[in-house]
Design a protein around this nucleic acid. Structure first.
Lengths: 178, 178
DNA sequence: GTAACTGCAAAATCTTTGCAGTTCA
DNA sequence: TGAACTGCAAAGATTTTGCAGTTAC
């Protein structure tokens, strides 16, 4: 769980029932398509379900390699692609060039992101009024929305604080530095 | 201008005064940093300022090569990076793995995007109420927002219509074809 | 038994960088 | 003149793919 230390933890209370639903969906999909359950897949999938909310491929790989040293990039890529295909996971990119995956919105509720460009922290938020306005806009354009992405980039409270105290350390009793 | 044919064209009325401001900002930045104005840069920059709203690097390169066959990828990349550095352009990624650039928000007004996954069309929209809600959320988390991204993915009105008529063609007496 | 899966390494993309020659100021 | 710029090609980074061997069903 990578959440803002001082912040109350919003939104990421994963709903157990929804998690079960996702696992069932995956199960069904795999049976339908004649896909197999291998040790590697189980490990990757479990790690993904239980791990931090916005893991990169790299992070996930490192984590599964902690259990099974021999797992390769390709298997992780292929497995996450499988999860995305059946709607259990969504791929997200936050502009740092890395792909991250998160559980589909059924499990954690509908949410969007605040991303700190200083420390990389990702905070989730939820705002029903924004969702409502979005729907209105889509309707106005006759657009059928299947997914959306709403991200705000900037500096989190902690980093602002750190920067400010670093600045005042620099000299003496002066005020805020630019 | 890549806009929905039937749609009223929103937002992309570029404000000439703002455009001038951006050119001035660029000019100032280049002088400050001791950067030079070369024929290639001028061509790329003009093409970018006058071209379609969300060009990819590839598209921009093709367009400038129409004028000067010898321009290389690296120069386009470097020039757009320069524009982004001085706040004249912003890089955007819409999930197809390509970088696109658009003029900074000073020129066209604050806006966000509807992206059609069927035909790739990008529609811009503007919704002050959403901006206001965003600000409220950022404040709640003590977050200092420097930029944001709000995208809705789905199927545009045209593509829905096309798909529907394709479906009814399959059967009997259908109506309008796209 | 066989079709799906795995790991590896090679390939494919997109973007950045190093270099030698060119050009703006 | 000389630092900045350009084009090319090589290098990087991330993701995908081909293949030969392995394994689930």
């Amino acid at each position: 769980m990578v959440h803002a230390p001082g912040e109350e933890e919003r939104v990421t209370h994963v709903d157990e029932a929804a998690l079960e639903r996702l696992r069932t969906r995956l199960q069904t999909y795999m049976v339908e398509k004649g896909l197999r359950s291998t040790a590697q897949r189980r490990l990757i999938i479990d790690t993904f379900f239980e791990g931090a909310p916005h893991m990169t491929i790299e992070e996930l790989l490192q984590q599964v390699r902690g259990v099974d040293r021999g797992i390769g990039y390709a298997t992780v890529y292929r497995t996450l692609k499988l999860l995305a295909e059946c709607g259990v996971a969504s791929e997200r990119r936050f502009g740092d060039g890395l792909s991250r995956y998160e559980l589909a919105d059924d499990a954690s509720s509908h949410h969007d992101h605040l991303i700190c460009l200083s420390c990389g922290k990702i905070i989730e938020f939820e705002e029903p009024q924004i969702e409502a306005l979005q729907d209105a806009i889509a309707e106005k354009y006759g657009f059928l929305v299947t997914s959306h992405k709403h991200e705000m980039y900037g500096e989190c409270a902690d980093c602002q604080r750190t920067k400010k105290s670093a600045a005042s350390e620099g000299a003496d009793g002066m005020r805020d530095g630019a």
